[in-house]
Amino acid sequence: MARKDEVGRRGEDCAAEYLVRCGYTLIERNWRCSQGEIDLIVARGGDVVFVEVKTRSGTGYGHPFEAITVAKLARLRRLAGAWCEQSVLSARHIRIDAIAVIARPGQEPLVEHLEGIF
């Protein structure tokens, strides 16, 4: 596995653990369809949340949230709709969140959560 893939997997693990600690239930991880992939899908209180996780080993190339472009947000919205169309779960509300993980070697990862980014 390439180093960036390992960093990404570690970030998704951290994000999933963080969300579970915050009372969310993990529904799916790395859900894929022909349009792309959603990193995490979680639920809490009747709401379904689609989560984009961005991980960096430092901020030398910018904060992880800076990698979420307008085009990426539009694709996440389409993906959320595709998931809703095929899912048997019904949600009171849906939203798209972002989680940034800064996982510096030898340090505890820093997790930041932005709710309702789109």
Rank of each mutant, 00 (worst) to 15 (best):
V7G: 02
A74H: 10
Q107F: 12
Y18Q: 09
A15R: 02
Y24T: 00
A71C: 08
V101Y: 05
V51H: 00
N30G: 12
G58H: 00
I94K: 12
C84K: 14
L73R: 10
R95C: 08
I102Y: 00
Y24F: 12
R75Q: 13
R9Y: 15
V53G: 00
E112I: 04
R92A: 06
K54A: 02
R9F: 05
R104D: 07
R78M: 10
V20R: 01
E115Q: 15
R75H: 06
F118L: 14
N30S: 14
A67P: 03
H113N: 09
Y18N: 11
V49P: 02
I96T: 02
I94P: 06
G106E: 15
Q35H: 14
L26Q: 03
A15W: 01
K54F: 05
N30D: 15
E17F: 10
I117N: 11
V101F: 07
Y24Q: 04
A100P: 05
I99Q: 01
L110H: 09
L89H: 10
T25K: 14
C33H: 04
C22R: 09
V101R: 00
C84F: 04
H93D: 09
V51D: 05
K54C: 08
A15S: 11
E37K: 05
G23A: 12
W31V: 02
A82D: 14
A16H: 03
A100S: 11
Q107L: 14
V88Y: 06
V53Q: 03
P109T: 01
A74V: 09
A71Y: 13
F118P: 15
T59G: 05
V111G: 04
I27V: 13
V111W: 03
R29P: 07
S87C: 00
C22P: 00
A2M: 14
Q107D: 14
R44T: 09
